[in-house]
Amino acid sequence: MSDETAALSPRDKWFRASVAITAGIAIVAAAVGFIWLPPFQAGARFQGVWNAICQAAGLAQPAPTAAEVVTAGYKTTGVVFTPGMFQGAGAESVGRGATLALRCTMCHGARGMSQANSPNLAGQYAAVVYKELRDYKSGARTSAIMQPLVVGLSDQDMRDLAAYYDYLPRPPAYHPASAGPPPEIVVSGATMRNIPPCAACHGGLDNKTGSPWLDGQPAPYIKAQLEAFKNGTRRNDISEQMRNVARNMTPDEIDAAARYYSSQPP
């Protein structure tokens, strides 16, 4: 249709005007945003026209000097979680895990329920068991007891152990009404101190990948872990998820949480 496309011809005055104005605005904006403004930022990366343009365009570039790369001054975990990474571990894996676990019963109990204030492993999420074992092995999580025990474990051994403990029945959450309402810190957190509810990650409200099942764990263990996160002696948690929580907890809140989660059916 001639009427339709007439305006698309460079001879049309509307065409010339609108394209010129739009292009003009874009060019001026680009000149300001890509060439003029970036050098006002400190750092050699922004100096010079080409550098300025690359920075302003958002090109991913390796940091020029090692000094600019921020690394933790300690060993961090090497485990990356992806959802479903432990789904579908076969019976074979569970069986191998059960054999390997014979070495662990002394402390973690015959069927993963500890009698000795070591953590229960029965029903613990496979992702958690696997990650903690890897962290002990790499030294990201330190423990004079556990570290020597994992030295000889292969990656597949750790996966099998994880599958086995995941397979065992988990201690149920036992919070009878007679025990009173759950502590504030567990169900609401402390928003002004940046503490989300424990239940938002550890189950109850929601379960986030990598957050251990806590119900039924011995109170001294929970308390010791929270204190270790708080004073920085345990720092294998990804992105400081638990350290940020524990650092802002009061001693009373730590006690309340330990008491709450350690509750077990009589």
Partner: peptide, 10 residues
């Protein structure tokens, strides 16, 4: 990148 943010802002 900040350059594109600036253009969108304009």
């Amino acid at each position: 990148g900040s350059g594109f943010k600036f253009m969108h802002s304009v």
